[in-house]
Design a protein around this nucleic acid. Structure first.
Lengths: 180, 180
DNA sequence: TTGACATTTGACCTATTGGTAGGTAAGATA
DNA sequence: TATCTTACCTACCAATAGGTCAAATGTCAA
């Protein structure tokens, strides 16, 4: 995104690495090599790795909110919005990445309680936005269906990653959409 | 499971740890402490950690096959079989664990090509068995729907883990079942 | 009883991990 | 001008990672 801010460059790279290999799959040294700053300098911005993860999630939630606002202003058609939601994550899958939520949920065991709360918040954000659109579609029990929707999309990303195949994601999400 | 075989005890503990914290979230030292055998002894059985992961998946596929055979003989009703499939994984979720496939797919970045193939195989096993039952149910495009089914259940486990809440899993899977 | 093989151990190795200590050059502020 | 703050750096640390190896122990058949 923005090449200006060091903090953002660190977060961008960290997020990429988390999405590719999980929270325990990268080190400060990896980030250091990637963006050309020394390891202790990263500690200057994020004293501990947990601090990094927490900020990663906070920023992710802000990005989600911005994305949803953009989607809302982009079209009034809830069905079209759902399609765009899926297309957004397709971009990640194309790069072999996972949604940050999925990546962090997988090794939640090594995440502090605070981080897990933030992770839950991010998932809530998704569910809330989806439920709003399912409500417009007059779908009964929109909150439950939103949870189903989120789970399926996250699962589709997981499978696509395992098969290293974008079409796996697209096919599953296509079939999901047809049920709404 | 079996307390007899050292190999199985090692695999049981390793699987538990993978399901709790991902492939990079545990070490040979952790296994060592847990089952009371020295670290070099683990290397005797599994020279490298990748060997461990590979055998983990091979055994998992055998367990899946056994499970499916048991399910098949357990009831002829395909709808009931799907329910049992979901109940089986609920046992994992209850312990805060993920399906081995989901856990390993998340950090597939640090897994060898051979392991990724085995992972794909395990997912294929699931899809194949599900597709068979969807075929009996006369559902059109059973293979595609089986993929959707797998993705949703894996995703439901991911969410349940993030929320640390079994009912999240149950609710999503309930809603999934109602669509078949 | 002995030899062969399977299993397990202690001692050790190298590289990497997350993290700290102390310093410095460039601005900003007073 | 004096001081403080930001944004980095070099040098270092203890702990842990995955892994090796020779020696010890256990098991069992001939």
């Amino acid at each position: 995104m923005s090449q200006t801010n060091t903090t953002d460059r660190l977060l961008d790279e960290a997020q990429r690495l988390v999405q590719l290999g999980g929270f325990n799959g990268f080190s400060y040294a990896d980030i250091s090599k990637a963006i050309g700053i020394t390891k202790p300098s990263i500690h200057y911005y994020f004293p501990t790795k947990q601090d990094l993860a927490l900020e990663l999630l906070r920023r992710y939630r802000r990005q989600l909110q911005n994305g949803f606002e953009w989607l809302n202003s982009s079209t009034q058609d809830p069905k079209a919005r759902l399609t765009l939601y899926i297309q957004f994550f397709a971009g990640l899958v194309k790069d072999g990445r996972l949604c940050l939520c999925a990546a962090l949920a997988a090794d939640a065991g090594s995440l502090s309680a605070q981080i897990q709360l933030e992770l839950q918040g991010a998932l809530e954000d998704k569910k809330t936005w989806l439920a709003q659109n399912l409500t417009i579609l007059k779908i009964s029990e929109p909150n439950r269906q939103a949870a189903l929707f989120v789970a399926t999309v996250e699962g589709a990303m997981l499978l696509a990653r395992a098969y290293n195949d974008l079409s796996t994601y697209n096919t599953i999400c296509q079939d999901l959409l047809e049920r709404f």
